[in-house]
Amino acid sequence: MKTNRYVVAFAGVMFHLMIGSVYAWSVFTNPIAKQKGWAESSVALAFSIAIFFLGMSAAFMGKVVEKIGPRLTGTIASFLYGTGTIMTGWAIHQNSIWLLYLSYGVIGGLGLGAGYVTPVSTIIKWFPDKRGLATGLAIMG
C-alpha cells in the first residue's frame, strides 16, 4: 500500500497539535496554586522543567528516530507525555509538588521532546523536494 505524503504531513501536524497542549499550562497555574496553597512560581516551575526536558530529549531523539523509526518513537512519546499528564493529576491530588515536577516536568517533558522531533524528521523525508514546506507543515501544529 502506498501512502500519500500529505497524509503523513497531516498526521505530523495533528501530533504537534496534541503535544502543543503543554502551552496551556499557564491557564492551570493559578487555579492549582490557589487550590493547593502552593506559590504560583512553584507551580510554574513545572512548565520550565518540562521545556528543559523537551529540549534535552529533542536533542538526542533525532538519532533514535533514525535508528528505530517514527512509529516506535511516536508511541514512546505519546506514552511518556500521556503518563506524565495522568501523573500530574495524581500529583495534584496527592498534594505533592515534587511529584508534579517529576510527572509534568520530567516525564511529560521527555515525551514532548520525543514527540516534537518525530514528525519533523519524518515529514522532511517525505518531502525531499520541498524541505521548507515540510518543516513549516510540521511546526505549524
Rank of each mutant, 00 (worst) to 15 (best):
L80I: 00
G113M: 09
A46I: 01
L72V: 12
A59L: 15
L112E: 01
F127V: 07
G37V: 06
F127Q: 12
V64R: 09
G115A: 03
N95V: 08
Y23T: 00
P119Q: 05
F10L: 15
L54I: 00
M1P: 08
A114F: 14
A33P: 08
L133M: 14
I107K: 06
V22S: 11
R5M: 09
A138N: 05
H93F: 13
A44G: 06
I139G: 00
A24R: 08
A9W: 06
G84R: 13
A134D: 03
Y23E: 05
A11H: 01
W126Y: 15
P70G: 15
R131S: 04
S121R: 11
V64N: 03
S103T: 03
S42Y: 08
M61F: 14
Q94I: 02
I97F: 02
Y23K: 10
F79Y: 09
T83C: 15
E66L: 12
V43G: 03
S42F: 07
S48Q: 09
K36M: 15
V27C: 04
A9Q: 11
K125E: 10
H16I: 04
Y23F: 15
T85V: 12
S21F: 11
N30S: 13
Y23Q: 10
F28W: 07
Y104Q: 10
F127K: 11
G89F: 11
F15E: 03
G105W: 01
G109L: 09
T88D: 00
S48I: 02
F53D: 07
N95S: 15
F15P: 01
M87W: 13
T75S: 15
A59R: 09
L99G: 11
L137I: 02
V120W: 01
A138R: 08
S41N: 08
F10Y: 12
S96W: 09
V27I: 12
F15S: 12
F10E: 04
Q94K: 14
S103W: 01
R131T: 00
I123D: 01
L17I: 11
A77I: 07
A138M: 07
I51C: 01
G12F: 08
P128R: 13
I32Y: 02
S57R: 04
P119L: 08
V27F: 13
K63W: 08
G108K: 10
I139R: 04
S57V: 10
A11L: 14
I19K: 09
N30I: 08
F79L: 15
W38N: 04
M56T: 01
M56Y: 04
G12N: 11
A134F: 03
I124W: 06
A46V: 01
I92G: 02
V27H: 05
I68K: 15
A11Q: 05
A91S: 14
A114N: 11
T122D: 04
V27G: 04
M87K: 09
F127N: 10
T29C: 07
M140D: 00
G37N: 10
G89C: 13
F79H: 05
V8N: 02
A58M: 10
L45R: 03
